[in-house]
């Protein structure tokens, strides 16, 4: 176990190979930045620039936490969320959005999303929410 995965992961002592946080955004630059930020605080993650690819992945892997961008050309975040629920995945979902769209945000929350963060979402609250979601997901699994 390298320090890269952080205290949290080592503390929980769970295998991380199939327990990654999934980041889904069509903007690769944003994905790379988010991924690096999460890694820097020890949060293991997988990145997907296409919602379709993510769904393929989710079919065969457990997704404890998914961070979804709302506006994506192929399939928007809300639709991905809908699929996750329909497939009765017990994933905790956090939305991020680059647009001020209260309607979509309200829908997301109403459908059971943990939170919606407007970009740029880099503050401690964002990271904390992810950590909490991850913990919650593990607790649920246990």
């Amino acid at each position: 176990m390298t320090h890269r995965y952080g205290r949290f992961v080592s503390f929980l002592n769970v295998p991380i190979s199939n327990e990654s946080i999934c980041l889904v955004d069509d903007d690769v630059s944003v994905l790379r930045g988010l991924s690096r930020l999460l890694r820097s605080v020890g949060l293991v993650n997988q990145i997907f620039s296409s919602p379709i690819q993510f769904i393929e992945y989710a079919k065969s892997h457990r997704v404890p936490v998914a961070v979804l961008d709302i506006n994506m050309p192929e399939m928007n975040g809300l639709e991905v969320f809908k699929w996750l629920r329909s497939a009765s995945m017990n994933s905790r979902v956090i939305f991020i959005t680059g647009m001020n769209n209260p309607e979509a945000q309200a829908t997301a929350i109403a459908q059971g999303a943990i939170a919606v963060f407007p970009k740029p979402c880099t503050d401690e609250a964002f990271l904390e929410t992810i950590r909490a979601a991850l913990a919650d997901s593990r607790k649920y699994q246990e």
Binding site: D27, S29, V30, R32, G33, L34, R36, L37, R39, S40, G98, M99, K119, P120, C121, T122
Partner: peptide, 15 residues
């Protein structure tokens, strides 16, 4: 917002 988000993420990560 997109590039700004990426910049901020990377800067925070460096921190």
């Amino acid at each position: 917002n997109q590039p700004l988000t990426a910049i901020l993420c990377n800067a925070k990560a460096i921190g």
